[in-house]
Simulated assay, not measured.
Amino acid sequence: MDIARVYDPELLPPLEMVLAQPPLNWDDLPGTRQQGLELQRQLLTTFPASPTVHKEDRQMPGPAGAPDVPVRLYRPSQVHGPLPGLLWIHGGGYVLGNIEQDDLLAQHLVDSVECLVVSVDYRLAPEHPFPAAVEDCYAALKWMATHADELGLDRTRLAIGGASAGGGLTAALALLTRDRGEVPLIFQLLIYPMLDDRDATRSTEIFAEAPIWNREDNRRGWRAYLGEAAGGPNVSPYAAAARAEDLRGLPPAFVAVGAAEIFLDEDVDYALRLAHAGVPVELQVYPRAYHAWDGIAPASRLAQQFAASRDRALREALHPQRGG
């Protein structure tokens, strides 16, 4: 793939820096996770923590028969009274990622949106295949709702969000939450979500050799999460939300995806299906953008445009009385 022709020129220098790093080692996922965690912790030391955000790590009860789930709470230190809440779900292809990787983003969202953010450190595949991850996320969401008074949350203003596999888990969690009927949700933030295990769209073919999360990575991620069921006829929509036949009654959604990544078709299709089901949805497709462009090239025009839209959509959803 000639990336100079496919991608926005402003996105190329940061991408080349990322590609200079060792590639994802599927044969040593624990080692890759540890390297990523150490790198993220080092990175965080170079950025001062927001003076207006209070952070707290907790262990909350996991699903029945499962271990406790680590969560990190972020709250405005200068704002009092019940706040809207966002459950944030990190990405990583269902096999990577941790609570540290979106620490700066969570702090930013607290300041920009004026909400409480709970970031969940769910169990990873293949050691913990489906439904471990989505059940951990559901446990965290239910914990937020049942402990709203203690946390200073307004339980009538709860949203969920995530990027990549975290976006896929967000969509699956929205379906699971709708069907269980225990926690009301008012919004879902789906950032280039990983939704479909079937690997059958045109964009997976066009961008099969993408430098960031290519077709083979995607297949491996789904196989790790779903095992031999991946791509077959018996995959639950709580694992791969694109499998859901009925999208009615889901919370309003914001969907964003790059125009030059394998998730383009499945994300656009899901947004259209949400709209056809009567779910309010905003879809944004970013031209010449690769997967995770906003995190790799945060100073770029496209990343800044996306961040402004994301924050605006969250503010409008969580503070409807302000009109955004």
Rank of each mutant, 00 (worst) to 15 (best):
L43P: 00
E316D: 00
R155M: 01
I89G: 05
L175P: 10
L264T: 12
A308D: 13
L264N: 12
D267I: 09
Q59T: 00
A260Y: 00
A148W: 02
W26R: 09
S112P: 01
G295K: 12
L195A: 09
G152I: 00
L176K: 14
D28K: 08
V110I: 04
A125C: 05
T156Y: 02
T146Y: 08
G85L: 01
R248P: 01
S77N: 10
G36K: 05
T156L: 03
A239P: 15
A224D: 05
G324L: 11
L272A: 14
G81S: 01
L11D: 07
G65T: 00
D265G: 11
H291E: 08
V53C: 10
E114G: 03
I262V: 15
A307E: 15
L151T: 03
Q305G: 11
H90C: 06
D68L: 01
S50G: 04
R155T: 10
T146D: 14
A307F: 15
D57L: 05
R178G: 08
D27M: 12
Y286H: 10
A297F: 06
I89V: 13
Y94K: 04
Y94V: 07
P13N: 09
R322L: 15
S309V: 02
L185G: 11
Q284Y: 07
G36F: 06
I186H: 06
P131D: 12
P131M: 12
L158G: 07
N25K: 12
R322T: 15
A307W: 14
E245T: 14
G232F: 03
C115S: 09
A239V: 15
P70A: 14
E182N: 07
Y290E: 08
L19W: 11
M60D: 00
P48F: 06
Q101D: 05
R288N: 04
E216R: 12
G92S: 09
S77L: 14
A240V: 07
F47I: 14
P237Y: 07
K142H: 13
V18R: 11
A313S: 14
R178K: 13
P67W: 10
G93W: 02
G324Y: 07
D68K: 10
H276T: 06
R72H: 06
E228C: 02
A125G: 04
R288F: 00
E228Y: 02
G231L: 10
W88Y: 15
L175M: 12
K55N: 00
D294T: 08
S309G: 03
G62N: 11
D27N: 15
C115D: 07
P61C: 04
P70E: 08
